[in-house]
């Protein structure tokens, strides 16, 4: 059974058809790349999956359960987490406190365990530990997110997403705005998450960057799926080449 199954999803903004009858699925353990030129509707697809936007029609299934009209928090608790293109953090909380929010359960009256170990684990998996900390013992950074470089902010986003224990991770342009060195760091991080068995859907307009990371690629153009397959198959597809040339190349 597919982990995520999107069927005939449609969303328009006024006269603009942002997503047109899109269907795709994601198998457990897979990394799927959702690529397309700017304005192809990639981020809209993520917003629809996360319940931030409501589709005009179509359905979204997660683990066989329909989640189309669920509120965001419920979708997150079901096991989908999203890393935003523009970092969404708490500017007056430290890195530790930022990550901690994801480890706190959605119950007001609860005897749930202390969120500290989970917070530290999220920091450790994303490389947000204090440099001076002891071996085998991670202490999350105590600085404010505003002090972090772009790559650090991306790690923080990943840590906040991982903290919700997702079965499916949606990454929205994880390499946007990063220096070449930071791109390498973050792709190593994504590769290590994949090796841990994390299922990931990755959005990017740059196909070359995601080629070596993904198992399968879905190509969007003007809200429509124009190709699907392994990176090699997709790269050879003439329709894809045309779309990219028309849209400014890749």
């Amino acid at each position: 059974m597919a982990l995520l199954h999107v069927e005939n999803l449609r969303k328009s903004f006024g006269g603009l058809m942002a997503v047109k009858d899109l269907s795709f699925h994601v198998e457990p353990g897979e990394i799927v790349g959702l690529i397309g030129p700017n304005g192809a509707g990639k981020s809209t697809v993520f917003n629809l999956i996360m319940g931030i936007l409501k589709p005009d029609r179509g359905q979204i299934f997660f683990k066989g359960q329909e989640i189309t009209h669920w509120p965001t928090y419920k979708i997150v608790n079901a096991g989908i987490a999203r890393v935003f293109q523009i970092a969404q953090y708490f500017p007056r909380k430290t890195v530790y406190e930022n990550v901690e929010i994801s480890a706190i359960p959605n119950e007001i009256f609860t005897r749930a365990p202390d969120p500290t170990p989970k917070t530290l684990q999220s920091c450790e998996r994303t490389g947000l530990c204090e440099h001076s900390s002891h071996e085998n013992h991670c202490i999350c950074r105590e600085e404010l997110p505003g002090m972090l470089p772009q790559g650090g902010l991306r790690r923080l986003e990943l840590a906040r997403a991982i903290g919700t224990d997702p079965e499916l991770l949606l990454l929205d342009e994880p390499f946007a705005g990063l220096s070449p060195a930071e791109v390498d760091e973050i792709s190593h991080l994504i590769a290590s998450l994949r090796n841990e068995g994390q299922t990931i859907v990755l959005v990017d307009h740059n196909m070359r960057g995601v080629m070596r990371l993904v198992d399968r690629i879905v190509v969007l153009c003007f809200g429509e799926k124009i190709a699907e397959g392994t990176p090699e198959e997709v790269a050879r597809n003439p329709q894809v080449q045309e779309a990219y040339l028309a849209g400014g190349g890749f």
């Binding site: 996360m50 509120p71 965001t72 928090y73 419920k74 997150v76 608790n77 987490a81 999203r82 935003f84 969404q88 953090y89 708490f90 500017p91 007056r92 909380k93 929010i101 994801s102 706190i104 959605n106 906040r160 997403a161 903290g163 919700t164």
Partner: peptide, 14 residues
């Protein structure tokens, strides 16, 4: 207070 969307994205019913 700091970022309501980010709290929702952390699985919290704000």
């Amino acid at each position: 207070r700091e970022n309501e969307e980010a709290v929702e994205a952390a699985g919290i019913n704000t």
